[in-house]
């Protein structure tokens, strides 16, 4: 099997997991979350095999084009869920993680973005910068999903409309605590990734588009984390900012990289070389 087939398999398993998760949430079958976890673990294994094979093939950390970056990002998202889910008793978040992982992979597989990029040897600093930055964006995705779960619970409680989701999702207090921790962890990782970027030697002009975008994202999440210390801010607003911030990141990530001078996933070779 070639590497893309493994990713297709992983994506298919994420889709099944998303559908199963939606069913179990509606049917309030708590015991069924074990099956969902097994599905996610299966998908994650296939996902990991893809990244390994791709890395072996290109002899780089598999983040050399948008296709690989999206696959790495969704992998980071799922990895974080698998670590955090059991620790914070938030296994139910898998129901939210699978659809996002599916969408990211589906976009990566169907959009014409898997274009081989003959990059020179990057060196450990660049690879660390890319890996940490992409991973932190994946983790910010999990934070956004936790924020989304919080907003769903909040809405149901406010409207006194307690559906089966209300009973399946964790208490708001636990979601709030997990949301803050995941945000803090992702922000820390993102900051380190950015900081490493400043130490990477480059030829001439700085990549102002990407630097500005990264600075904006960093400032946004920094404000989300620090604002409650100085302002009377409800967690509902923080959750909205986290979800909105992540939508902004996802929507602008591709565009910003296209306009960027050093971070773009350029189609250097002819289109005929695109992997299918």
């Amino acid at each position: 099997m070639d590497d893309r087939t493994w990713l297709v398999l992983a994506t298919f398993l994420y889709l099944i997991s998303a559908a199963w998760g939606a069913y179990t949430l509606g049917a309030r079958r708590v015991s069924a979350t074990r099956w969902n976890l097994a599905l996610i673990l299966g998908a994650f294994s296939c996902h990991s095999v893809f990244l390994y094979l791709r890395g072996e093939e290109i002899r780089h950390c598999p983040v050399t084009n948008l296709f690989e970056v999206l696959a790495f990002l969704s992998w980071s998202l799922v990895l974080t869920y698998l670590v955090i889910g059991p620790v914070y008793r938030l296994s139910i978040l898998g129901t939210f993680t699978s659809p996002l992982a599916f969408l990211l992979n589906f976009f990566a597989l169907t959009a014409p973005v898997d274009i081989p990029n003959q990059l020179p040897v990057m060196g450990p600093l660049v690879e660390l910068h890319i890996a940490l930055s992409v991973m932190s964006i994946g983790i910010l995705g999990l934070a956004a999903l936790t924020g989304l779960a919080y907003l769903i619970q909040e809405r149901q409680l406010k409207r006194r409309d307690l559906t089966s989701w209300f009973y399946s999702l964790p208490p708001m207090g636990e979601l709030e605590a997990a949301h803050r921790r995941v945000l803090t962890f992702a922000f820390g990782l993102f900051s380190i990734g950015l900081l490493i970027g400043f130490f990477i030697p480059h030829d001439s002009v700085s990549d102002w588009v990407k630097i500005t975008w990264s600075g904006m994202v960093w400032a946004l999440y920094g404000a989300i984390l620090l604002a409650p210390r100085w302002l009377p801010l409800s967690h509902k607003k923080i959750a909205w900012c986290s979800v909105g911030g992540y939508v902004f990141v996802l929507l602008t990530f591709w565009g910003v990289n296209s306009f960027s001078s050093m971070h773009q996933f350029t189609a250097q070779p002819p289109a005929s070389e695109q992997r299918t």
Binding site: F166, P170, P171, G173, E174, A177
Partner: peptide, 19 residues
């Protein structure tokens, strides 16, 4: 599932809000 007296419903809601 679900509490069926006023008092226990209040407790259930409190646990859903605060953990």
């Amino acid at each position: 599932r679900g509490r069926i007296s006023v008092g226990s419903v209040a407790v259930e809601l409190a646990e859903k809000i605060f953990g």
